[in-house]
Every structure is written in structure tokens, then in C-alpha cells.
């Protein structure tokens, strides 16, 4: 379970998060929607430990552990995963090497045995197949020359292999056509289980047709201003975000 209590954060002098409160129980998928500049991406970066953000108050507890004190790699080992809005290109780093290094680092940190190259390939090929991805994806450099859709699928591939307990999807739908969107959604839905939860950050309702959330929260001006069931997303789609900041 993820509990965010009164979380405030800033970049430089700019206050971005102003007391976010949120609980995501195990097994649930929650959506965070909101206008541009509301702090959606900041929330995902603060939760995953990117540098440059100063937490000025509050806490984030995942499975009883204060994650804000942990290095990014320790958060990953604890079961958190951030699917990037803009996945980073790594020229010279082969995708297979990257995936195996990540998987084995996480397995080691969790006290599990590392996978040899053969066992890893078997696992990776099965995961690729589920995501309708070609095997040659493993041979290419990480995200280099990938289309927008391929980059997002590569994020979901990493998630499928690392099997996080909590996934944060930062605008994973941006830049995706409808076919790629469905594949990504299926990848997330395939992970659904009583021990998996997700925070789906999105500007548009579209993604939520395919990843149906248990709860929808509206983030505006650094705070959660409304929460509701899946119907809230439809309402926002119809009426827009106007007026929510005042709520």
C-alpha cells in the first residue's frame, strides 16, 4: 500500500506540490488526472527519487517504508517502478544487457538468485511476445531510434520483467496511436493482481477506457482537489478542468 501524506515539494523556489494526500491500497489502480502544470509529473518524479526536487514536507510510505529517504535504485528494489513520459535513450547500451542488469540488480536486492543469459532470454522473449514486440528489440540500443510507441512498449516490457508491486505510469498514453495504446494497456492489465497497484497519471480520459481505474483523483495546483470512481474521468472529459482549482 502507498500512503502519501501531506506531501509538498518544490523545484528551486517554485512550489509544485502543496500538500498531496493519497492512499493507493494493494490490488487497486488509481488514476491521477489534471491540467498541465498541476504537478502530475513532479509527483511521479518525487516518488521515484529524481534529483532536483526538494521535498519540503510530508511523507510517502510504501509497504510501511518511508521511500523518500531511499536512493532511486532502492525504491526499485522495494518494488516501485516509474514508466517515463519521455523514456531516455542510451546509445551504446544494448537493450538485452540493460534489461538483464536491471532485473538481476533487483533480484539481488530482493535476495533472489540472478538469472544467467539463457534463462533471461527465455523470460524476455516470452514478455516480448505478450507485448507484440519483435525479438530484435533486445539487440537494439536502449530506446535509440525507437518510435514513440516502441519506447512506451519498451517501458511496459521493463515493467513486465521487473514485476513491481507499485507502478507509476507518467502519461504513458502520450504519443501513442490506438493500437499501441491497447497493447500498453493490456501489458498493465496483465500485471493486475492483489499484490499489484498502479498510479496512472494522464491528461486524457482515453487511456482509462483500457486501464479501468478503481479510483480517479484530480490534481490541480499541487493538491488533490477531487476524488471519485471511474465516472469522474468521464465527467472531466465532458466538462474539462476549468473551475477545479477553486474546488
Amino acid at each position: 500500500m502507498l500512503e502519501i501524506k501531506n506531501l509538498s515539494a518544490r523545484i528551486g523556489d517554485k512550489e509544485i506540490l502543496r500538500g498531496v494526500n493519497l492512499i493507493v491500497p494493494d490490488g487497486e489502480i488509481h488514476a491521477i488526472m489534471g491540467p498541465n502544470g498541476a504537478g502530475k509529473s513532479t509527483l511521479s518524479y518525487v516518488l521515484s527519487g529524481r534529483e532536483g526536487y526538494e521535498v519540503t514536507g510530508g511523507e510517502a510510505i510504501y509497504n510501511g517504508q518511508d521511500i523518500l529517504a531511499l536512493a532511486p535504485e532502492a525504491r526499485a528494489a522495494a518494488g516501485m517502478f516509474l514508466a517515463f513520459q519521455y523514456p531516455v535513450e542510451l546509445p551504446g547500451v544494448g537493450n538485452a544487457n540493460f534489461l538483464r542488469t536491471a532485473l538481476n540488480a533487483v533480484r539481488r536486492a530482493r535476495g533472489e538468485a540472478e538469472l544467467d543469459a539463457v534463462a533471461f532470454l527465455k523470460l524476455a522473449r516470452a514478455a516480448l511476445k505478450n507485448l507484440s514486440m519483435q525479438d530484435d528489440m533486445l539487440k537494439r540500443n536502449v530506446n535509440v531510434g525507437f518510435s514513440g510507441g516502441e519506447k512506451k512498449r519498451n517501458e511496459v516490457l521493463q515493467m513486465a520483467l521487473l514485476r513491481p508491486g507499485l507502478a507509476i505510469l507518467d502519461e504513458t498514453d502520450s504519443g501513442l496511436d490506438i493500437d499501441a495504446l491497447k497493447i500498453v494497456a493490456e501489458g498493465v492489465n496483465a500485471l493486475r493482481s492483489p499484490v499489484f497497484s498502479a498510479l496512472v497519471i494522464t491528461h486524457y480520459q482515453r487511456l482509462l477506457d483500457y486501464i479501468v481505474p478503481d479510483r480517479v483523483h484530480v490534481l490541480a495546483a499541487g493538491k488533490i482537489v477531487r476524488s471519485g470512481g471511474p465516472e469522474l474521468a468521464l465527467e472531466l472529459e465532458a466538462r474539462g478542468y476549468a473551475g477545479l482549482e477553486a474546488a
Binding site: 521515484s48 527519487g49 529524481r50 534529483e51 536512493a71 532511486p72 535504485e73 525504491r75 526499485a76 528494489a77 517502478f81 516509474l82 517515463f84 523514456p87 531516455v88 542510451l90 540493460f98 542488469t101 536491471a102 532485473l103 540488480a105 533487483v106 536486492a109 521493463q158 521487473l162
Partner: peptide, 10 residues
């Protein structure tokens, strides 16, 4: 950061 967010030590 991208690598670390995947669990790879710094």
C-alpha cells in the same frame, strides 16, 4: 537516473 530507477546501483 533512468538506469537507477530500474534498480541498477549508481
Amino acid at each position: 537516473f533512468y538506469l537507477r530507477s530500474r534498480g541498477i546501483p549508481e
